[in-house]
Design a protein around this nucleic acid. Structure first.
Length: 275
DNA sequence: AACGAAACCTGCGCGC
DNA sequence: TGCGCGCAGGTTTCGT
């Protein structure tokens, strides 16, 4: 469940529950989720730590501990967190389990095992990959920034928007919605995009992402939701998942195509390649 | 620099 | 019921 609004929702919900909790033990059932550290080091670094904050940049969430160490977590396609009593049986998809001193667990659940976790310290948190490579947050864009980033690039608009070093936090759902709101074709080459159009893209992104955060993100195609929180922004989606339906602006039929290998929804009448 | 395809994984829905 | 295929909200890597 992972674009900016969904990760932000997880962050806010999780923060209310785990702030101040102290880690008693960590269980790793699938090692590959841990990046740049062996299981032993990972576990030893976390035992005794108290969570004092949870922050987010783009789709990366990070836990802050009292000794100025950090744990970056990326949910990728299907990562979720659950809080459970430590005595409850461990689900086969619960790969990393943080056991707190109060008897509760924070369990990382990931059917496809694509998610990642990485330990950082105060010195390298923001200055090394991945956080050092992120562009501006998808709800804090301005046209001049986008226009500058597009300079000398030769690629489709959607590909540009999905590149996290250009804009942090946009994924496949919101990329489609932003292109539609800006009335631009996802395949439109960024070298043809004007400053004025960049202003429209920035405005569309800021508005859509902020509305989605307020709605708790989107829940599509997922039966269980992280922390039992189900977003409602899918009710406000205008093109994504709407193949065959009527466009809300012009009544033409929404089509589905492929851009950069990703399923892409658009209105061929509102979003024309040639103007 | 840019593209596609493959890789990392599992599960679901579909047509036969 | 079973099987194979395509698809999935992400990112990295590799070959052209």
């Amino acid at each position: 469940m992972p674009e900016l609004p969904e990760v932000e929702t997880v962050r806010q919900t999780l923060k209310k529950i785990v702030l101040g909790k102290k880690i008693k033990n960590v269980i790793i059932n699938y090692q590959r989720i841990i990046q740049n550290s062996d299981s032993d080091t990972f576990i030893k670094s976390l035992i005794g730590r108290t969570i004092i904050d949870i922050n987010r940049l783009g789709k990366y969430m990070y836990f802050c501990f009292e000794n100025k160490t950090y744990l970056i977590s990326h949910l990728r396609m299907e990562g979720k967190y659950f809080i459970k009593d430590s005595s409850l049986e461990i689900d086969k998809h619960e790969h990393i389990i943080f056991q707190f001193e109060d008897g509760s667990d924070l369990r990382y659940h990931d059917v496809r095992k694509f998610g990642t976790m990485e330990l950082k310290n105060e010195d390298n948190l923001l200055t090394t990959h991945p956080l050092s490579d992120l562009g501006v947050e998808a709800n804090r864009l301005d046209g001049k920034y986008l226009f500058m980033k597009m300079n000398n690039k030769n690629q489709p608009l959607k590909t540009f928007l999905l590149d996290q070093s250009n804009v942090a936090g946009i994924g496949n759902i919101y990329a489609d919605e932003i292109c539609f709101k800006a009335r631009l074709h996802p395949l439109l080459n960024v070298k043809k995009i004007t400053l004025e159009e960049c202003e429209k893209i920035a405005e569309a992104s800021n508005e859509i992402i902020n509305k989605a955060i307020l709605a708790g993100g989107s829940t599509i195609r997922s039966y269980t939701s992280s922390l039992n929180v189900t977003g409602l922004f899918q009710l406000q989606l205008l093109v994504h998942t709407k193949k065959g339906e009527a466009c809300c602006m012009c009544n033409n039929t929404i089509i589905k195509c492929v851009v950069g290998g990703r399923g892409t929804y658009l209105c061929p009448n509102c979003q024309k390649l040639e103007k």
